[in-house]
């Protein structure tokens, strides 16, 4: 696997010519009394939290604490059972009609999803397309780019993730780390303003983890993106985030900058969790 040659540049104008550039500041996110149930099991109980525009937030906590569900709600892969989710100044799952707030239709969701991109634990590349098609299909079909424009963008992004030589490769011929880099490039090709990272290195062999994490850290630092990240890798959480939210049973137990949460957590629940994670 080729090394990542993207140096960590200072933030000044970094996004000007980066392949991930877009116009305007990224939106903030607000969860307002959000409820999510799976059958009898309530995963999120009237959850409230805010993410500032351009803020990078990591969600940590034990399995089943609702972290991934938060990302899936934002990607519209799950629908909430109550409350409001705001992206910028608009609600994701509701729209205005005649002054009333009504459940969102497909058109509204399509509009809102333009701002959001997601990288999955299992990469989920399309096996019926080669790497290039994986990166161009969305921009061409959804954003309406010409094939040439989309391919230029794809090449830039493959350079960024260090896989320029794999452009015609088939996903099944790539290692897990390479597949995840392609998946990151695929998400960025849609120029999202909010990037959701769902345990993106959990499925990787240990020796590939750091490369993907460093790539994401560099992307996060060089681009004006609002990032929500679920991870069990504490080093990565420290690297990528401005703020860490510790979840347990669908509630936020503790929050703060990574130095504080990892350095001197105030809650016993957080200390227990960190101890358990670091022990593995």
């Amino acid at each position: 696997m080729p090394p990542i040659e993207q140096p960590v540049e200072p933030l000044v104008n970094a996004s000007k010519d980066a392949p991930v550039r877009r116009d305007g500041a990224p939106p903030g996110i607000r969860f307002e009394k959000v409820v999510k149930r799976f059958g009898e099991h309530t995963v999120l109980r009237e959850l409230d939290f805010d993410v500032a525009p351009g803020e990078r937030v990591t969600l940590i906590g034990p399995s089943g604490s609702g972290k991934t569900t938060i990302l899936r709600l934002l990607m519209t892969l799950e629908s909430p059972d109550g409350g409001l989710i705001w992206i910028g100044d608009r609600t994701l799952w509701h729209m205005e009609r005649k002054g009333e707030r009504v459940p969102a239709n497909q058109k509204h969701l399509h509009e809102m999803r333009k701002q959001v991109g997601m990288v999955f634990q299992q990469f989920n590349l399309f096996p019926n397309m080669n790497v290039l098609r994986n990166l161009t299909e969305g921009p061409v079909r959804v954003l309406g780019l010409s094939r040439d424009e989309a391919e230029d963008r794809a090449r830039d992004l493959l350079d960024l993730v260090g896989l320029a030589d794999k452009i015609t490769a088939h996903p099944s011929r790539l290692s897990g780390g390479q597949q995840q880099r392609v998946a990151i490039a695929r998400a960025l090709a849609m120029r999202p303003q909010v990037l959701l990272l769902d345990e993106v290195t959990s499925a990787l062999d240990p020796e590939l983890v750091v490369g993907v994490q460093d790539l994401l850290r560099d992307i996060a630092r060089q681009n004006d993106l609002t990032i929500l990240c679920v991870t069990h890798e504490m080093r990565f959480a420290r690297d990528i985030s401005d703020r860490v939210l510790m979840f347990d049973a669908g509630r936020i137990v503790e929050e703060g900058p990574p130095e504080q949460i990892f350095g001197e957590p105030s809650e016993q629940r957080t200390r227990d969790f960190l101890q358990a994670v670091l022990a593995t």
Binding site: L77, H110, R113, G117, N124, F126, G138, V142, M190
Partner: peptide, 16 residues
């Protein structure tokens, strides 16, 4: 199902 979800994440329409 993950393929369906990846397609939603790329904002494909149901037909696409």
């Amino acid at each position: 199902k993950a393929q369906h979800e990846a397609a939603i994440a790329l904002n494909f329409t149901p037909f696409q």
